[in-house]
Design a protein around this nucleic acid. Sequence first.
RNA 1: GGGUUGGUGGUCUAGUCUGGUUAUGACACCUCCUUGACAUGGAGGAGGCCGGCAGUUCAAAUCUGCCCCAACCCA
Length: 887
Amino acid sequence: MSTDANARERDEASLEGGYDPEAVESRWQDRWVDAEVYAYDGDPQRDPNTVYSIDTPPPTVSGSLHMGHLYGHTLQDFAARFQRMHDGEVLFPFGYDDNGIASERLTEKELDIRHQDYERREFQKLCREVCTEYEAEFTDKMQGLGCSIDWNNTYKTIEPRVQRISQLSFLDLYEKGREYRKKAPAIWCPDCETAISQVEMEDDERHSHFNDIAFEVAGEDPAREEFVISTTRPELIPACVSVFVHPDDDENQDLVGETARVPIFGHEVPIIADDRVDMEKGSGVVMCCTFGDQNDIEWYQAHDLPLRVAIDESATMTDLAGDYEGLSTEEAREAIVEDLDDEGYLRDRWEITHAVQVHERCDTSVEFRVSKQWYVEILDHKEEYLEAGQEMDWYPEKMFSRYRHWIEGLEWDWLISRQRDSGIPFPVWYCTDCDHEIMAEREELPVDPLSDEPPVDSCPECGNDAFEPEEDVFDTWATSSLTPLINAGWDWDADEEEFAMDNPELYPFDLRPQGHDIISFWLFHTIVKCYEHTGEVPFDATMINGHVLDENREKMSKSKGNVVAPEAVLSEYPVDAVRFWAASAAVGDDFPYQEKDLTAGEKLLRKLWNASKLVDSLAPADPDEPAELEAIDRWLLAELDDAVEELTAHLDAYEFAKARDRLRTFFWNTFCDDYLEIAKEREDNPSTQYALRTAHRTFLELWAPFLPHVTEEIWQALYAEDGKLDETSIHVRDWPAPQGYEADLEAGETAMEVISALRRYKSENQLPLNADLEAVSVYGPVEGFEDAIQNVMHVRELDVLEEPPEITTEVAAIDLDYSTLGPRYGSKVGDIDAGIESGEYEIDDDAGVLRVAGEDLEDDVFEVELERTYSGEGEMLETDSAIVILE
RNA sequence: GGGUUGGUGGUCUAGUCUGGUUAUGACACCUCCUUGACAUGGAGGAGGCCGGCAGUUCAAAUCUGCCCCAACCCA
């Protein structure tokens, strides 16, 4: 058995052999969870500024993990891991959203049951059982992403504690006067038979017909016989309550004040002027039905029109529809059109495609129904919510405009009651006599009015002793919008008679991550709720991630069949490589998933692994710091300081792509390609040994947020002390800080140029890179780096020249500094350019000026570029700041 | 239809807010090279005039206007 296999057998981190991500990654994932490396030790006394808390929107457990989850959570994890190292204490919780229609349907399907057959609590119990299995699977997958979630801090949106918080939230907003129950037109889904909110609607293109229907003008001596109305919904004419004409519509002005007779049904309705009529559409005359669309509702309210309900809660025609009673709206539409045609009222009919508003869950087109519903008042606080949004830092900033536009476009208060069985019940009863609202006692929550008794024996309003329970449940968003309060342990303190949090140090949360598609409802609703409860904006910052598209930049969708499953990706590539890819896009940008991008990550892991092996072979693990570092080593550490500083700034600003690229370039090009090659020639040098190890440790720490597995493996193999993992893990170390190394960066840069020039020389002359060079002279600032150049390029004799070598020069070009020249000479710049181009200029070295186009240019605006010709022995190589002579 | 965001070599992308003239890097491509870790490596090379048009300016990928295309949000 090889040492390699032995090591793996013992489950110990080891640098033997090649990197084996498959074995290493799952091993660390398990250990991190077992050792609770990412556990948050809650301490209410802690200074909130030293805790970094994340509030993440819980995913629906019944859905499977998709690339969006993978991407979103990976970004959150970059922030969490960086902050954990940088600031110390991090809360990265996790929630399972199992409250809602999705998990209800899942349970029905899984157990082959109908929720109607069960009492609500019973059904919810079944839901929780079914969801538990899915949650376990989801947990596994999440842990497979290497996210540093605190698995001790999880919640489910249907669990009793969350139900209690939801109901407390309802009571609190009720007491604050932010909620009301009102009989009013509401958006209604006839398939789900529930009211829904504005956010649950979406538009869908549907085929339909426009019907031109003739209405007679009633009364004696009317202005004209009839007029025509175009409608896509003839089944609504029994619900017609008025006809509208625009006040500026000269052609139809004669109708205003008249009475129209509705065809077939024969009832008469007034014709009214209103500027909400769209004159461009159809004949300019429109009917108002209760209710066809939102305009109808406005008219109904503005003109105090009667209510005619022709369609019931299941989209079936009512008795108002006469002969059509009992038909579905679809059937009624066809039947009515046919009868209109028979009776000569149908003047035209043609096919169209138009957008209809549908319920996003079931794609059923919505109706508007008058019903008694609970609302959260939001329209009167639009300004405040806008300000709350402004107070947050948005990453990227541009996403704020989506939030702003959403709020500006709000037209409805938030409808929070749903006529569903499963969900969190309203803790309310009503007096059967006076309809007085009886709220549950806070201590009793969570309650279910369907099975629990109200807290009073008789109505405090009228003394009646019979009550009716509220059957409705909360909109799931009413609960999902409480996640910051759930995470902070918000509850009613009965002794103090006020709301309090178990962990107030977490609130407001430092970061709220989410996709750009849910800004308008999830983020918005969360701000509404938390702001109303606490008076504070719940988040300091929000990070909006883009969407993962397919390789052709198209949105992934099941119908297109272009969905890439995370499982498929993770079975092929290391998680660390996938994370490296996830860091490649600017936060907020959509970006394509391209398999080839993952190989870049794989290559980096291999490079990091191999470089670590080399470092390990070149220097003892923990060398002492020499009194004085040599120039080349000090140079590396000074460059490292710069990198650390920039990287920290990038990560602080959620600029993961910039951090990733900066670190990769520095690690690969500067450290591996330049410094390691030099270090190979300086093996026993204590200065180099110290720099090597210092840089290597720092690199592992800097890479750790991006590549948690490979860095942990190398760290544990080389540097970890004995002890428990939650203390020795690289992920709980302090983030590197610049050490203040000072070096001659110019000399270092010049030395690298010289090395590069010599490499190019060998390459062009088809020499191996380790071929000996007899003698090399350098003219340029490379002080302190002579040995480095000499050793790494195998130069037998290196000479640093005090004076320029024997070269003759002639002017090759004149470089102008336009940023200085432009403002100074303005429109003369064109002439100056032309003069230089044509060679009509004179350089006066003594005066230090360039005479061209009648101007004397000062020496700060131009630079003479010389063509050098070497007239001595050997060959000359030029770099930006040095001249190299090879003999 | 309205709004938002974006359109940079074959692909992905930096730079655009704070205009300055040789536009960043990676992948792919071509040539060469076994440097004591990595050939899944290294050294080089070719390849774009920055969606289109017009304008502002001495100067525009960068500012303004219009147009085209794409995605998203809202109708």
